[in-house]
Amino acid sequence: MSELLTLKYTVHGDNFTGAGEASVSMKRELRQLGFDANVIRRAAIAMYEGEINMVIHAEGGEAEVIISEDRIEIILRDEGPGIANVELAMKDGFSTAQDNIRALGFGAGMGLPNMKRYSDDMRIETEIGKGTTVYMTILSDSPKNAL
């Protein structure tokens, strides 16, 4: 399928207040392109959790969204500490976030599981001390649209 639009964002790591701005912008673009509301919601939540993760754990990073008719691909790149044990990090409730983050309503170990739950495909490349890249695909036509 042909590519409709590519969006690029910088996620600033020093600013929890601004976390989510890229997701809001992407959501607006997807709405203008006429995507189904469930597809938009899945993409927005997956990206939002990813953005929050980049702010909490990695001092920010870069987000790229490649929009085609049949899919939305989200790539989140950071130069943070990396994830020591991806399998463990994917478990509901596992978190290395500090209490100050929990006080803000996040850091309950739901971020990565939520990203997996709402995307049709998710892949994590990570290296300790170098950073993490998360690739997520949200398909326009997917049984997950019923979520």
């Binding site: 207040t17 927005a44 803000l104 309503g105 170990g109 739901m110 939520n114």
Partner: peptide, 29 residues
């Protein structure tokens, strides 16, 4: 907010004691 994003479906109203911009963004998402 992570619980709201994880488990809530088709809810139109969020009641919370938390007061930061992420509450609004979660509701938007």
């Amino acid at each position: 907010m992570s619980d709201v994003l994880a488990f809530v479906k088709d809810q139109a109203v969020l009641l919370t004691g938390l007061l930061n911009p992420q509450v609004i963004r979660t509701a938007m998402m």
